[in-house]
Every structure is written in C-alpha cells, then in structure tokens.
Write a protein that binds this DNA or RNA. Structure first.
Lengths: 253, 253
DNA sequence: TGGGGTTCAGTGACGTTGTCACCAAACATC
DNA sequence: GATGTTTGGTGACAACGTCACTGAACCCCA
C-alpha cells in the first residue's frame, strides 16, 4: 500500500453496500536518476510519458482500493473512471437472460480496464460486468483527464490503443474457442491456466462452468473422465493435478 | 461516385491480384449555407468537426474503391488506413484451424472499420479478416492522419470511441449468442435480418452456416424443419419466407 | 444438345454437449 | 447432533457437430 498522509476521505461507492476508499495520489519521494518513482513505472506503456504529462497524470488521478467481489461496473453502472490495476484482478463476465454466465477476460495488475473507456466516452451501457476477484488496488483516471491525455500525448494514445488491441484479440479468441474448440481441450487449458504452476486448483465445478460458458454437469462429467484416466484427483472445491503432462498435451492439441 | 478530375493514379493493392484505385479526395463545390458539402456529411459523428479539422481530413484522406470479394485486411495483412465506408459492406470473419468460419460483424455504409485502428496503432496481427461483400467505396485515413485527428479534435475522439463501443457491444452479443442461444432462434433471426423486409433470401446453406458459426448439415436440418412447418420454401441458393410472422416470433423469444 | 465437372443439398449413424429432475455427500451453523 | 446450504453425481433425453456418402441442380463447352 502506498503511504498516505492526512485523513482518508470516504466516498459513496460502486455498490451501495461497499465503501470505496479514494486516496489522492501522492508522489513518493524515491528518486531514480532525476525522476520520481511512482505507480506509473508499473505500466511499461506509460514509462516513456514526458515529464509534464507524467506529473499531470499523477496529480489528476486517484488510487482506489475495493474489497474482493465488488462489482466495479455492470449494466446500468457505467464507470466514471479508467482503471489501471496495481494489485488484484478484475473478472469481466456476461450473464444471459437464462442466467448462464461466461467469463470474457480478466484484467491483471499492470493492465487497464480499457474497454470500459469506449462506453466511458460514448454512452452505451455495457451488458458485461466487471468484478474484483480479490481485494484490488487501482489508479482511477477520470473521464476528462483520460480525454486530455489521449489528446496531449502520443505515448498515452499508444498505450490506450495497444490495450484495446490486446483485449479485442482476447475477445476474438474467446469467440473462436466457444464456437470451435472441444470442451475437453478447453477445460484442460483452463485447469493449467488456473493452476499457474501449482499442483492444485481451487474451484467448484460451477465456477469452471462459468469460465467456459457451459453447464456444471458437463464439467463434472469431463472432470470424472480426467480422474478416470488418473490425471487429476478431486475433492470438494479443489482439483489436484497429479499428472499435468497429458493435460498440457491435450490443451495444446 | 464523386466527380474526379485529372488522371486517376493506380496503386498496388490489397491483394496482389486486385487493383485498388485511389483517388485524392476532391472537394465538391456544392455549398450548403457557408459550408462545403462532402462525404463527411454521410457520417453523423463527424458532422460537427470544426472547419479546420474538416479541411485537414478532406485534404489528407483518399477515396478508394475495391471490387467485391476483396480481402481488405487479414492475417499478415494489417491495414495501413482507417476506412470509413461510403458504399457497400465489409464482412469481418474469423477462420479456425479446422477450417470452420464465423462472421463476427459487418461494417455498413456510414460506419468505420474502427477495430482495425487498434492493431493499426498497435502492432498485433488480426486473426480476423475483412472482406468487401460488394463493390465498396471508402475513405482511407492514413495512420498518421488518424493519430493527429485523435489528438486534435474532441469530436473525432468521440466518433472513434463511439464506433469502438458499438463494435465491442456487437462482439459481446456474438459471444452471448453462440454460447447461450439455441440455433433455431439464431437462424430465424438471421433469416429475418438477411431478408431485410424482402420475401427471399439469397444464401446457400453453407453461407448461413458461416454466419452462425455452425455446420452446413445443421442448417439444412433446421431449414427443413422450418419448411415442414410451412414457414419457408427452399430452392437451390434461395429461401422464400412465405410465413414471416412465426419466424419473427421465434427470433424474439 | 448432351456429356462432364462442380456446387449445393439431403441422409443416416454416431459422438459430444446441453438440459432437466433428482439424489447424496460434504460442509456450515447453531 | 439436527438442520439447512453448497457441492457434486446420475440417468434420460434433446440438441448440435461430424463423417461418409448420395443425388440433384447448375455451368461450361465442345
């Protein structure tokens, strides 16, 4: 957590039952050469901002923290700020009329919720919603500041459009996967991804179903098949990958 | 077609076997009040550009025409220009490794291929490709001009981000449809859309399958069911909607 | 004008995925 | 330990995807 001096103003918040603490961003006096170190250095795309822009951005943005499971934006809750994540992850997902859900993409630390800027500068409502998966710390850039930065800095424009590019590519991949990939491959892929090198994955079958936009029963059946082959072991809420190799192989095919 | 004076320079082109005719954009001397009429007025989002920006845009952009079935951009063929469509439509679709295809969205006259700007300013390759469905006339805005316009004009920024918003919303809808909607509903919807008020749809079963990201046989079976119910009549390459009402009802459910 | 190639559509069998109704085990709470 | 909730298991069936194959409609050109 960055050091904060003085009183911490509390604002009303994203969802009525959550408190969003907003801190005015404060420069930390750690010099690196002739430059001040700040959160900006956590974003490679922003590191080359000229000094004036850099200062403007630092002065006009705030650092916010939200608790886990906060709905950051969603239908009827269009975001007022562009968020750059410092810690935590945001899950962006969509819910259908019938109640089924699918995860579209995740925003990790060092990335931006840039797709929201589209509706931030335009007026359309998102049908998707963004949820903080863990306690999340982020830089909030107000609409007007974002607009000015896009106007004034070619580096910032590059940053924004590069982020767009990545997200849109992600969406294309999601479409390709749900339309064309077989479920066993997608599930193997997701297990490897969620394990992130570790041996166990903490997730219920229902959660995995939402990740892949399918039904719980389908996940249960497929995991039983993996178990029957001796690749995984299951217990309530967790899956142990005891033979990752064939899973990896399946995920790549 | 806009009047063009002098010689028409021919450039090398988008695909080696197609010629892309590029015309320097020429102001048409039709005054409307104290303002010059031009293609800009076909784009509501651009109509409020200030005079200087307007002139810059007119001078620095070109009007291009491409024949039907031209691949405008695709894997390994990143676009050098932002295209604003004056006539025709561009189909953006994606092909999987296994050869199956799906239509992601269409760009119509009066709209822009704005998602390409993401990779235009960034460096990533699109896995999707854009194909002119009919002979297509468009305004081409070079990368550098696009960047300058985004920098200089808040109206242009609004235009760009609004277009982004629409496209991304489209993508979300595509994801929701493939993941959650039943095929009969999607097919009914697509038939109504392609008919556009007319009685007949000219499309092979294969084309419809690509529209919905499914297999031809599935379309054939479903159309047979519609036919059995007396809603449509089929002949090679065309479908007659003889009872649109129940199709519309199905599409809305 | 009629052969020959190509495109388009129809069919049946089968595997995979989605849906529904229901049950049982594991866990949380008091 | 009784109770309610969450999580996972099961079987039947419907919907969709895949494959191999067939025949009809169309095009072209000698």
């Amino acid at each position: 957590m960055l050091p904060v001096f003085g009183n911490i103003p509390k604002y009303s918040c994203i969802r009525d039952n959550f408190l969003l603490h907003q801190f005015r961003c404060i420069l930390i006096s750690v010099s690196k050469g002739d430059r001040v170190l700040s959160w900006i250095d956590q974003f490679p795309g922003l590191s080359r901002l000229p000094e004036g822009i850099r200062t403007y951005l630092l002065n006009e943005s705030k650092i916010v923290t939200v608790p886990a499971n906060t709905v950051i934006f969603g239908p009827g809750k269009s975001p007022e700020n562009l968020l750059l994540l410092l810690d935590g992850t945001v899950r962006v997902q969509q819910t259908s009329d019938t109640g089924r859900e699918i995860v579209l993409y995740r925003v990790h630390a060092g990335e931006s919720c840039v797709l929201t800027t589209a509706c931030l500068l335009a007026y359309e409502d998102y049908s998707a919603e963004g949820i903080a998966e863990t306690e999340t710390r982020a830089v909030a850039i107000p609409r007007a500041v974002f607009d000015k930065l896009v106007s004034d800095s070619i580096e910032f424009r590059q940053f924004v459009f590069t982020a767009y590019s990545k997200r849109i590519t992600d969406l294309f991949m999601v479409i390709e996967e749900i339309a064309f990939q077989k479920l066993d491959i997608r599930l193997a892929h997701k297990l490897i991804e969620l394990a992130a090198g570790a041996e166990t994955v903490s997730a219920t079958h229902q959660k995995l179903a939402v990740e892949l936009g399918t039904a719980r029963e389908v996940i249960s059946r497929q995991l039983q098949e993996f178990q029957r082959r001796g690749w995984i072991e299951q217990s309530r809420g967790t899956i142990r990958l005891i033979e990752p190799a064939p899973l990896v192989k399946l995920a790549q095919s």
